[in-house]
């Protein structure tokens, strides 16, 4: 009887503790999670984001025993209407979280609000939230990434010469921030003159066409910087076609295989690279943490790497 009383007393004491543990942030548990990754467009840079996301899923499965499914759903073109349609359709499947790289914060606002109204955790990667919306976001400091590239170009040109900027998708916030930061750096150097700006819409083909035309129109052009990952690859191809490897300096962006090859072959001087694998990895981690009820940081910086012939490897 005494033992029973002690057991009951122990249980009475343990109950609130257990209840407390259940309610504690980050303690909600599920057997399986399904997270959606919605990039800007079908693109090799986003494949690296997906690789990182899959890596996080494997790690979480190994550590928690829960089944983690990553669904990668990309618009076929960098069109905000298509991206909104994908996000809205994705919401219908009641996922445990959606990670998105926004094509346009305002254009995407309604679909993000729809997800929030249905309590679906959100994370933005490589982009910033619409004004007034509290959504955790992941990425490198876009401005700093651009400034690393433009400062390097100024240094290589000795502070003098005509340069051009490839703007990527002008409505994409990360691209427009980078373009603006390139302009800021060039404006600090009176010897540097920005003679042209191109729009490649994150397409290597368009970047090549734009770069070729700009170099035709500006025969004294000495250097290029870009605001997206596709841009420098297209610019590099245009430089090769024009046979201007020794006359035009390209400081690229990001670390796609073609970009790395251009650094190795000397077509590009260097590249300021964000780390897409890390962005995908931490997107899934932050979605999972939100799904468990854990508090998450509002911004997570995945940093930039500066790649040159010396450190790019074989």
């Amino acid at each position: 009887m005494k033992r029973l009383a002690m057991l009951l007393a122990g249980a009475a004491l343990a109950l609130p503790l257990a209840a407390g543990a259940q309610d504690a942030p980050g303690t909600a548990k599920k057997d399986s999670y399904r997270f959606l990754i919605v990039p800007k467009v079908v693109h090799p840079w986003f494949d690296k984001v997906n690789d990182g996301a899959q890596m996080a899923a494997v790690a979480l499965e190994a550590q928690t025993g829960a089944k983690i499914e990553i669904v990668y759903s990309a618009p076929q073109t960098a069109d905000v209407v298509q991206q909104v349609q994908i996000v809205e359709s994705a919401i219908s499947t009641r996922p445990d979280g959606i990670a998105i790289d926004l094509l346009d914060p305002e254009g995407n606002r309604a679909s993000l609000e729809a997800a929030q109204s249905q309590d679906i955790p959100l994370v933005l990667f490589d982009s910033v939230p619409p004004e007034g919306m509290a959504i955790p976001f992941i990425g490198s400091d876009f401005c700093e990434q651009a400034k690393i590239a433009s400062r390097r170009l100024v240094e290589v040109l000795g502070g003098e010469g005509e340069v051009a900027i490839m703007m990527g998708v002008p409505t994409a916030p990360n691209h427009s921030i980078r373009a603006e930061c390139h302009r800021e750096v060039f404006a600090e150097h009176p010897g540097i003159k920005v003679v042209a700006e191109g729009i490649d819409n994150d397409s290597i083909e368009i970047a090549q066409q734009q770069a070729a035309a700009i170099m035709q129109a500006n025969p004294n052009l000495k250097g290029w910087v870009a605001s997206d990952a596709a841009g420098p690859i297209g610019i590099g191809q245009a430089i090769i076609e024009a046979g201007k490897q020794d006359q035009v300096t390209l400081v690229g962006l990001d670390n796609l295989p073609e970009m790395l090859e251009m650094i190795r072959s000397g077509v590009a001087d260097s590249s300021s690279a964000s780390q897409p694998e890390l962005q995908g990895y931490w997107s899934v981690m932050l979605l999972w943490q939100q799904a468990t009820g854990a508090p998450v940081p509002q911004f997570l910086d995945t940093g930039n790497a500066f790649l040159t012939k010396e450190n790019v490897g074989e």
Binding site: T77, A78, E106, G107, R109, A110, P170, T171
Partner: peptide, 16 residues
């Protein structure tokens, strides 16, 4: 209608 849906006038409207 698309401008009203997105809340912005996107230059890409109509491409699809």
């Amino acid at each position: 209608l698309m401008v009203a849906r997105l809340g912005t006038a996107q230059p890409s409207i109509g491409q699809a």
